[in-house]
Amino acid sequence: MLVYVHLDGATYPVETGTGVQAVRWLANVAMARHGGDRGARLGEPVEMRMETVDGPHLDASEAIMASQLHDEAHVWVLFASHFD
């Protein structure tokens, strides 16, 4: 399954394989790909949303394959700065 992860204005395609990883893993992969600081300046993600930045909340601890996610889904990773 391919999931598009939106992080700080950038979009990262992430191949999940069978999706046994936790949804939070998507944020970790995108942060690792996000520039030289690996997203460290953004802090810890506080929420993950599906389809739009205001879309349904995703449980970060749930397995990708058990979540609402589907092939070519879009996930937004939100940080505290989104709520300031």
Results as ranks from 00 to 15, higher is better:
Leu69Glu: 00
Ala73Asp: 13
Arg38Met: 08
Glu15Thr: 10
Leu42Ala: 01
His70Thr: 13
Gly35Glu: 04
Val77Ser: 06
Ala80Ile: 08
Ala40Gly: 09
Ala30Pro: 00
His34Cys: 13
Glu15Tyr: 14
Gly39Ser: 07
Asn28Lys: 15
Asp84Asn: 09
Ala32Asn: 15
Glu62Trp: 08
Met31His: 06
Met65Asn: 10
His74Lys: 15
Ala73Ile: 03
His82Met: 03
His70Val: 08
Gly43Pro: 12
Ile64His: 06
Gln68Glu: 12
Ala10Leu: 13
Ser61Asn: 13
Ala63Arg: 15
Ile64Tyr: 05
His34Lys: 05
Ala40Val: 13
Val29Arg: 15
Ala40Asn: 11
Pro13Arg: 09
Asp54Val: 08
Met31Pro: 00
Thr11Cys: 14
Glu47Tyr: 10
Val23Lys: 03
Thr16Gly: 05
Ala30Gly: 00
Ala80Phe: 08
Glu72Phe: 13
Ala66Met: 14
Asp71Pro: 06
Met48Phe: 05
Asp71Val: 08
Ala32Thr: 07
Met65Ala: 06
Leu78Gln: 11
Val5Pro: 05
Ala66Lys: 14
Thr16Trp: 07
Leu26Glu: 04
Ala32Ile: 01
Glu44Ser: 10
Leu42Gly: 02
Val75Gly: 09
Val5Asn: 01
Leu2Arg: 15
Phe79Lys: 04
His82Tyr: 11
Gly9Phe: 06
Glu62Asp: 04
Val14Leu: 07
Val20His: 11
Met50Ile: 11
His57Gln: 12
Phe79Glu: 07
Ala73Asn: 06
Gly55Lys: 06
Asp54Leu: 09
Thr18Asn: 14
Val3Trp: 02
Glu51Pro: 00
Val20Met: 11
Leu26Pro: 02
Glu44Tyr: 12
Leu69Gln: 05
Phe79Cys: 09
Asp71Thr: 12
Val46Arg: 11
Met31Asp: 02
Gly43Asn: 10
Leu58Ala: 06
Pro13Ser: 03
Gly36Met: 07
Gly39Lys: 08
Thr16Phe: 12
Ala60Pro: 10
Met65Tyr: 10
Val5Ser: 02
His57Ala: 13
Leu69Asp: 00
Arg49Val: 04
Leu78Glu: 01
Met50Gly: 01
Arg24Ile: 04
Thr11Pro: 03
Thr52Met: 10
Glu47Ile: 01
Pro45Phe: 15
Leu58Tyr: 08
Phe79Gly: 03
Ala27Tyr: 07
